[in-house]
Design a protein around this nucleic acid. Structure first.
Lengths: 207, 207, 207, 207
DNA sequence: GATGAATGAGAATTCATTCAT
DNA sequence: AATGAATGAATTCTCATTCAT
């Protein structure tokens, strides 16, 4: 087999692992089942990865890398985030990213919440995103001649807990909401945008 | 030993379990370690509980019961939530509750996020809290002669994702924030209130 | 079950392990088989021992402890080792000890020979025995007015390689000798005593 | 690649295997590591050898062949072994051989000691060597008009346990002695010769 | 000859749970 | 109520060996 196949096999393993981890949790997911789902021999998993932990680390690394890429791209595209149309476009980019990554995000949250995990992925990822966000807003303010808010910590807290977290929680619970409140993804997403605009976005926009 | 001791033993087991579950996660927590932490014989745990799962269920039930009690009490005490001073008092009650329950909340989130968990505690708890909240606001609106918003679903979504979730995430990540951004709990909490007021609360208050 | 049974169970495990280790070697011996041989559940082995390694360490410790006990007793009993009758008695004690311990000695040799084993049991045991032996001889010399040999290192080397090692090798290969050269244990043992007397003992006895 | 390289590759594999077997024992040595140490692909090992066992058998065969060659040569060179100078020369030949082969000898001992090994290499090798030795002595006796000892078994036992075994044990434990008793190889070797002369050799020499 | 990928059959260790007292 | 001992079913990881190229 050539490198092409090897990479594909590795990807299949990662994808199966991601699915299982998000379904039953990292600890309950069995390597045996990952192998079955990926259609490979169990030992082959250990040929590509040191341990079950390393699979998770690889998935987390990809998540962070993809987030970085997404942020760079979205910063390039967006000019003035404080304009509502632009913000909606950005919102869509974020929602798409977060929904695409929902599986691994669930695992990331579940693992990050454990007190034993030193530097959690969620903190790393969060830091990345809120700083990019803050930067965008700062630029938008400057270009408009508005003076950008003062206290760095205040804005960090606001971005993280009332900006990022609702997003992430949307990805986390969207499917349960669908069945619990009988709403479609589209409907939910629209309501979520409304809510987000009224709360977080409103706090940013000049009154 | 008498019933007093029995109840206390059971409580010790629950408390040890809660601690361990939140530290390493439900699946990684070993019954052996719970016994050690609680200072009881492992078999005794099975005298009081059917299984490890039942311990978790008991903890989750307590959480829900305590939330109900807290909600009833806070509803009784608070008259007009749309007044900022009153809201601050309510905010404090919520923060206190959520911080007191942070350990089991971490476990609840981690478990609820798994796609295999049918009706997650978080949805149950969330439903409870946002409905109480909505009720409070409705009453406040009525007493002020303001007409209460229209769409039930819209308000549910807003309360859940931009009201409750930031709170819960605060409980989840407060400790990691402390060490990551070098802030004290008090400082963080103050910033969080500011952010919450500017976003979620602002959306409720009449302009 | 009471402590009596627990100790007996542990002993059964150790005995089964000793048998298997000596038969197929430590590495090839399976914990499954130890359990089967001992008539206990495999998990019970891990209730009493941390790991397969710990079983071996326990066996080695017992070997060393038993050797110490044997040496103390034999020193007490024997007065003048340089008298042939006394020496024969001592020889018998040694032979009996070494034959009784042949199983674990085989394992000890096999493990000690590995370059990865830091301080091998064989060196530890050897040091113990040759020092006891040297002490006996020194005392016998003194009581006879003979002056005891000079160079400590010289005597250490002689005791270890031409005294102890033939003994240990006797325990190691006695059974293979029986079938290879068609000799009974008794016959072999007699020849061995003759050989030992002519070589090692002769070197000690005054000409 | 040509035959020269093939032979060299095979030799590299054998040498790496010998090193690893002696370091961690045959069972713990992994084919993967042999490949790494030899700088070849793992599958290539199976091109040259049927199995891991066959590698060991090849090493053991070489040991026996080399022993035979060494014995033939030393018999040719040595005339009268009962003369001390000649004996010292022979001793040096043996010591050199045994030290050169120490790695594989360690493996041989470890494997031979297992009760499951039918005809152990050590017995085979031992038989070879002690018979050559006995033959030398017999010739020396005859040439001197001394009558050679009667009982074949007696002399076999003596040669094996008090002649060969100390030698082999010297190869086995020399390095551990160096570090345990802080002696150099040269020093140890000299003491060993003294001890050997006083015990085994003395038994052969006419009084 | 040589290699990266793949596999089957283990093997040690774990762990929730139960039993006997 | 309480405990030490015991168990069955996993579960992660290993490793000699083979395959396809």
């Amino acid at each position: 087999m050539n490198k092409r196949d090897a990479a594909e096999t590795k990807a299949r393993i990662l994808s199966a692992a991601e699915r299982l981890f998000s379904e039953v949790g990292f600890d309950k997911a069995r390597v045996d089942d990952i192998a079955k789902e990926a259609g490979v021999n169990k030992a082959l998993i250990y040929y590509y990865f040191e341990s079950k932990d390393e699979i998770l680390e690889t998935l987390f690394s990809s998540l962070v890398e993809d987030a970085k890429r997404m942020l760079v791209e979205s910063v390039e595209k967006t000019s003035d985030v404080l304009n509502e149309d632009n913000y909606k476009a950005l919102f869509d980019v974020y929602i798409r990213f977060i929904m695409e990554k929902r599986k691994i995000l669930k695992v990331a949250i579940a693992e990050s919440v454990k007190e034993s995990s030193s530097i959690s992925v969620v903190m790393e990822l969060g830091n990345l995103i809120i700083n990019a966000e803050i930067e965008s807003i700062r630029k938008a303010c400057e270009s408009k001649g508005l003076n950008y808010p003062e206290d760095k910590k205040e804005i960090l807290v606001m971005e993280f807990f009332t900006g990022l977290m609702p997003f992430i929680c949307f990805a986390l619970f969207e499917d349960q909401w669908e069945s619990y409140y009988h709403m479609s993804e589209k409907e939910l997403c629209e309501y979520f945008y409304k809510a987000f605009k009224k709360t977080h976005l409103a706090a940013h926009l000049p009154k």
